[in-house]
Design a protein around this nucleic acid. Sequence first.
DNA 1: TCCATATTTCCAGACTAATAGACATATACT
DNA 2: AGTATATGTCTATTAGTCTGGAAATATGGA
Lengths: 124, 124
Amino acid sequence: MDIKKSIQIFDALSQETRLRAFRLLVQAGANGLPAGALSEALGTPHNTMSFHLKHLSQAGVISSRREGKSLIYSANFESIHALIAFMVNDCCSLEFASIRQDKKKCCAIIELADCCKPKERNTT
Amino acid sequence: MDIKKSIQIFDALSQETRLRAFRLLVQAGANGLPAGALSEALGTPHNTMSFHLKHLSQAGVISSRREGKSLIYSANFESIHALIAFMVNDCCSLEFASIRQDKKKCCAIIELADCCKPKERNTT
DNA sequence: TCCATATTTCCAGACTAATAGACATATACT
DNA sequence: AGTATATGTCTATTAGTCTGGAAATATGGA
């Protein structure tokens, strides 16, 4: 992932309506949710929601498919995985963070050392 | 990390000058860099850089200390670690991402499954 | 075809962020 | 005190974002 793309994703997720919509789509999984369900769930007018969904789509973190009259949106997990990898590689000290590919388990393993503050460990 | 805080950090990192400055500070490690070095490295006027450094400070991703005439900025790695944890927990499918604390190695282990590549739509 | 539903696009106003010049503050040295 | 260096604050301008009403497009059914 290049810096422009990562800025685009940070930008997409830096607005409350968009981040909330994105998290609903993450929860919904591969099935996704229709645009109307998102605007209803978040109490946002349909045209405003459409504006934000377009923003998220252009950043590549969601995509859509048509089913009858509805457009079903769903999260693109691989783009978020790529952003996490970018943050580990480029926004963390190499001294304290590492990422490697586990071929057998077919997954990326990230180690994040508790480098900076061994005192507080609030996971919220 | 709550949603407001994560939005604040996404916002801080969603601007090119700020993301580049932050990455320079990440590279610089605990020693950090003076404000002047950042504005020179990025070709940004000192007052504009000061504006962006304040933005990053308020988001909590960097902090500063005075050394003589200079203000030395450095990256707050724990805030980025917290954001990565937030993304794994709240912006990834639980089905495909997990985070756990390894007490012995004193680090967080994240597993990111290569979920999306074999693009089979599981319509439940 | 006509209508209802679902969603997007167009548009304008309100708001917010980024930029850089001018000035202010803090420190160190003489 | 006076001066130079380093950086922050104030201010205005410019650029971009968010919002929601109105109109447009797409689909499915009577």
